[in-house]
């Protein structure tokens, strides 16, 4: 009996301890699965610790993390790409709890494109002008086993832009030559890039910049320019829906209480605004120089000390 009581006491005390342990509330930063994002998270963590906070890096998934930010389990979501994450970002904002903490100092390109060697090998003469896609010979070079003889557009996961790409093909009048295939994840896109190169097969994929693919050379296709309302779902017509993608933003999201619980950290967070080369450097330190993410962050801070100090104050 005594044993039983002690056991209960131990369990209960663990409960108490565990709730006490919440008292020291670290700033929780999500880490996703690509280098620049992880290094940026580490940079923030190190800066927050310099400021006397504790920071914790939490592995997360890119779409579902906004719900976690919304209910306060994560404090920030620091790399929010318009093209791929706008939907969950705004959904969380609508439900309340997530705030927009500004954008990074860069314009993102998010568009269909081809790796440079596709142009060099002349697989589709006339690229990057989209008119080149009208040629059946060009489309044939991009056919795959499951594309039914048409050229294949490899779009990102469906929920990134839903029907924009199929509509664009229709709008441009090339849907008889090309067909859209949705990849399941960014990983699948990169694997396709590598496989196509090894095979010497043409590939048109959705990609963005800044990205690690910039290094190997990637060319975005020039589509008819984007304007507000050109797309079908925004009230456009079949004639206008062939327009390209808008220049995108890279936003920072925060939990609504973050400014109150950690005001100085939040101030830093709003001021923090990286440029494309800086984000490229973060990725490069890890991907090319083989550093571990935390070390890359330290290195990055050392190289950009002035800027960081400016944002801190």
């Amino acid at each position: 009996m005594l044993k039983f009581i002690t056991k209960i006491a131990v369990v209960l005390s663990l409960f108490v301890f565990s709730s006490v342990s919440k008292a020291a509330d670290p700033i929780r930063i999500p880490v996703l699965n690509w280098s620049s994002q992880i290094v940026m998270a580490n940079v923030m963590a190190q800066v927050f610790e310099e400021m006397g906070h504790t920071a914790e890096l939490v592995p997360a998934e890119s779409a579902s993390r906004y719900e976690a930010v919304r209910i306060g389990d994560l404090h920030v979501a620091h790399e929010t790409w318009e093209s791929t994450m706008a939907l969950p970002f705004y959904a969380a904002m609508d439900k309340g709890g997530l705030i927009d903490a500004g954008s990074h100092n860069l314009i993102t390109f998010e568009e269909m494109g081809v790796p440079n060697w596709v142009i060099d090998e002349g697989l589709c003469p006339g690229l990057p002008n989209w008119e080149a896609l009208k040629s059946p010979e060009c489309a044939a070079n991009f056919a795959t086993a499951d594309s039914d003889g048409k050229g294949r557009w490899l779009e990102g996961p469906y929920e990134w832009h839903t029907d924009v790409m199929p509509n664009r093909l229709k709008g441009l009048g090339i849907d008889d030559l090309w067909t859209v295939k949705f990849a399941g994840s960014a990983d699948a896109l990169w694997a396709e890039l590598k496989a196509a190169k090894a095979e010497g097969r043409g590939t048109v994929i959705f990609n963005w910049s800044p990205n690690f693919t910039d290094a190997a050379g990637f060319t975005f296709i020039d589509f008819p320019p984007y304007f507000e309302g050109c797309r079908l779902e925004n009230g456009g017509t079949l004639e206008t829906t062939g327009c390209g993608s808008p220049k995108g933003w890279l936003k920072k999201a925060a939990h609504i209480k973050f400014p109150i619980t950690h005001p100085d950290a939040y101030k830093f967070y709003t001021k923090m605004s990286f440029t494309a080369p800086q984000i490229g450097l973060m990725a490069d330190l890890v991907d090319s120089q083989g550093m571990d993410h935390a070390a890359a962050a330290t290195e990055f801070i050392a190289q950009n000390r002035d800027l960081i100090d400016l944002w801190k104050n």
């Binding site: 998934e61 779409a63 579902s64 906004y66 994450m85 939907l87 969950p88 959904a91 996961p157 469906y158 929920e159 295939k181 949705f182 990849a183 399941g184 994840s185 699948a188």
Partner: peptide
Amino acid sequence: IGTEDLGQIIMGCLS
């Protein structure tokens, strides 16, 4: 990888 079945929607539901 990229499918057009129930799994695609389940994955998409995260966002």
